[in-house]
Design a protein around this nucleic acid. Structure first.
Length: 730
DNA sequence: AGCACGCCGACT
DNA sequence: GTCGGCGTGCTC
């Protein structure tokens, strides 16, 4: 046990945000410091940020140990956050400094509070009154002692700043310095919520009961869109606030909208703290500080909000818990959904995992009794699933390089006659996925990784979807130098757009793909316009599956339902099932039932049949059985490893080295599987290889990896683990 | 992560 | 000669 306080000169261990494997020893500064304190320490010629982690280790030349420069003006990190970082870092094979960096993403966090000038009523009366002066004094009187900034006061009173400055000079208005970072407005849990019906009320009561218990527990809250799951979990948030604890609602970045914040405001009477990539640096610092001081009751944020320094966290809601954007796949790799469970378990908080289509991991944990389960039934007026059917492509008469079958063509024509919208879904960006030389068979691959390059005719370039590299389309084959022999093979949305325009020359065709817009804002505007009816036929990638509603849409045609089922990805079936159900769900509403058709060459495939029937429970059950048999998540531990190295040659040599090392892994009971060394991606100048490593239960994965990596002789570093499921926390 | 140091090839 | 690219080692 570390003492809670260190006296001046004590040897202490400090975790810095610099990439050292462990803590560094320092001397406590003048005036001492608390365990967990944020400090500035000298490191070589620099000053770096750190956290007092415990008693000094004493493994470093004592004469070289320096003293802490200063203790920063921030609430010390609580034990539970430090232990969360340690366990999360352990779990994801992430060095602790990198974990610590996730917690210190607020710039200027140690600065003394930034000040600004505010104005309130002064003591004396002005000698001469004017209309403008009266208005200013009235506004200040109405504020009842609260102060305003110059800009706010001038705007509310309808005067220019000079009027206020004049009043300050006369002493009728006082000017004071006040901290810029202010507490968040009080949220009232007892403001009238929406009336909850039957199973909503029961669900809310169960969640509230859990919050009242004050001990850790996770609940899977399942309810389709329109079943009122937001209202239900907001009641759990209300109960958490009543208990005087803080709550966190995590949302996928895309769902963090003004609309959601308005709903929160309607329920609690004020806006919560917001935390996501779009928040300004000053607001970020305010949120970080206020959360740490317990002066923000509720945070609504993206995955990184999980690393805020909560004082007494009582509830974490992970909305749309199945969403893959909870996976952080750059830098530190983690799944925020799993980390939410871990953090809550450590600090005795509740977790609500909300989704209409839960992930298999969460479903399995609920089945196993590790999570409680609440089901909400659909309310009247909710979107209904359209009529679903398949088109057996083996029976369709389709020329080469055409992808819209006659049957699908007729269905689209019918909508066009009625003036209704159709969506043709193809999850492939660009013009054609493969460019091949008809003379020698060479396929154009990326120079930086060995993925094939995708032609984007819109951009007039070949683009690597693996690493983002692009180059102009060559005139001659790079391999045999034959002219006019390069051919586009296979469909992409751009090419499908050409085909559809030729089939329906009178229709307005819009292609929706993430690479076709300069910014997220122009894309959003375009989607909105299309949803309102500026297109008759929409051709889209998975961009259209999420978020946006298309009320005029009555037909969804899936061009290639088999696309996601190829390959060795263990989540292929799960993802295809969810994607297809989501895409199909875009068609029609209760008052105007829609239709979804899927073109497939394998209508008997179990996943295709499951999508058709929509029987999620039995699909999950069979999927779970298969995963259990294969020993992969959620029933086995698995880690992905990223190896980074400095040049391509080395990466390929490394691939061979891995094959040799496979035997070493097998000896300790683990094995490499999944996509062998390729694909190699180039990330920030370094080349990376990703593979999957599986270790049987009972083998400490980290130890296995350490032994494995210990046998490597390479210059690059080795890191990471992800895709392990949360059941291994307990 | 930064930064210094030192090695090497390429060039005024 | 010397400039600059990069690989390596160091920081409590």
């Amino acid at each position: 046990m570390s003492p809670g306080f260190f006296n001046e000169g004590d040897l202490i261990a400090v975790m810095t945000t610099q990439p050292f494997a462990s803590t560094l020893d320092y001397r406590a500064p003048e005036g001492g410091c608390l365990l967990g304190a944020f400090v500035e320490v000298p490191l070589g010629p620099r000053k770096v940020l750190g956290v007092v982690w415990g008693v000094g280790v004493g493994d470093f030349d004592i004469s070289k140990i320096r003293a802490v420069i200063r203790v920063l003006d921030a609430v010390p990190m609580r034990d539970e956050l430090r232990s969360f970082l340690e366990r999360a870092g352990n779990y994801t094979l992430t060095p602790l400094p990198a974990m610590l960096r996730l917690c210190t993403r607020a710039p200027g966090l140690g600065d003394p509070p930034s000040m600004r000038k505010v104005y309130r009523s002064g003591l004396s009366e002005p000698d001469r009154m004017t209309d403008a002066r009266t208005r200013v004094l009235e506004v200040l009187r109405d504020m009842g002692g609260l102060s305003l900034t110059l800009k706010e006061l001038a705007e509310t009173a309808g005067v220019t700043p000079s009027v206020i400055k004049g009043l300050v000079k006369l002493g009728a208005v006082s000017e004071e310095e006040s901290p810029r970072d202010t507490a968040f407005a009080h949220l009232d849990p007892d403001l009238d919520g929406k009336a909850l019906t039957g199973d909503q009320a029961a669900g809310a009561e169960a969640l509230m009961c859990g919050v009242r218990s004050g001990v850790y527990g996770t609940t899977l809250l399942r309810g389709v869109t329109g079943s009122g799951k937001t209202e239900v979990y907001l009641e759990a948030v209300a109960e958490c606030l009543r208990q005087g604890r803080q709550a966190l609602v995590l949302l996928p970045e895309i769902a963090l909208s003004a609309e959601f914040l308005n709903r929160v405001e309607a329920r609690f009477g004020a806006r919560p703290a917001e935390w996501h990539s779009g928040v300004t640096v000053t607001e970020r610092r305010r949120v970080w500080k206020m959360v740490g001081e317990g002066r923000a009751q509720l945070v609504v944020g993206a995955r990184s909000a999980l690393f805020l320094p909560f004082q007494h966290l009582g509830l974490v809601v992970v909305d749309e818990e199945h969403d893959t954007s909870y996976k952080q796949e750059e830098g530190v790799l983690y799944n925020a959904r799993d980390m939410a469970v871990l953090r809550a378990a450590i600090c005795g908080a509740r977790v609500v995992l909300a989704s209409a289509t839960p992930s298999l991991e969460s479903w399995a944990n609920a089945e196993a009794g590790k999570y409680d389960r609440i089901e909400l039934t659909a309310r009247f007026g909710a979107a209904v699933m359209p009529v679903m059917r398949t088109i057996d492509m083996r029976a369709e008469d389709l020329p080469r390089d055409r992808w819209v079958s006659p049957t699908l063509q007729r269905a689209v024509a019918k909508r066009l006659e009625k003036g209704e919208q159709s969506l043709l879904f193809l999850n492939r960006r660009g013009y054609a996925p493969v460019t091949i030389c008809r003379a020698c068979g060479h396929q154009i691959a990326c120079d930086h990784c060995d993925a094939r390059m995708v032609e984007h005719r819109f951009l007039k370039r070949l683009v690597c979807h693996q690493c983002g590299e692009s180059k102009p389309v060559p005139d001659v084959c790079p391999s045999c130098e034959a002219e006019h022999k390069l051919a586009a093979v296979g469909p992409g949305v751009e090419r499908l757009g050409e085909e559809v325009t030729a089939l329906f020359p009178e229709a307005r065709v819009a292609v929706l793909s993430s690479d076709m817009y300069g910014s997220a804002r122009t894309m959003k505007a375009e989607i909105e316009a299309i949803a309102k009816g500026t297109a008759d036929i929409i051709i889209g990638t998975q961009l259209v599956a999420k978020g946006h509603n298309f009320p005029l849409l009555t037909l969804v045609g899936v061009i290639d339902a088999d696309l996601g089922l190829q390959g060795s990805d263990l989540r292929a079936a799960e993802r295809t099932f969810q994607l297809m159900r989501q895409v199909a769900g875009r068609a029609g509403r209760a008052e105007k039932p829609g239709e979804a058709v899927m073109q497939t060459y394998q209508p008997e495939h179990p996943v295709i049949r499951a999508i058709l029937s929509g029987d999620e429970e039995s699909f999950w059950r069979s999927e779970a059985a298969e995963r259990r048999a294969a020993g992969v998540p959620p029933y086995g531990r698995m880690a992905g490893i990223i190896l980074s190295s400095t040049d391509v040659q080395e990466v390929f040599d490394l691939g061979n080295a891995m094959a040799r090392q496979d035997a070493a892994l097998r000896r300790i009971g683990a094995q490499v599987f999944g996509p062998a060394p390729a694909p190699v991606a180039r990330v920030r100048g370094r080349h990376r290889v990703r593979l999957l490593v599986k270790a049987p239960k009972g083998v400490a994965l980290q130890a296995a990896l350490a032994e494995w990596t210990g046998q490597f002789r390479l210059r690059g570093q080795l890191r990471l683990a992800i895709d392990i499921d949360p059941q291994s926390f307990f």
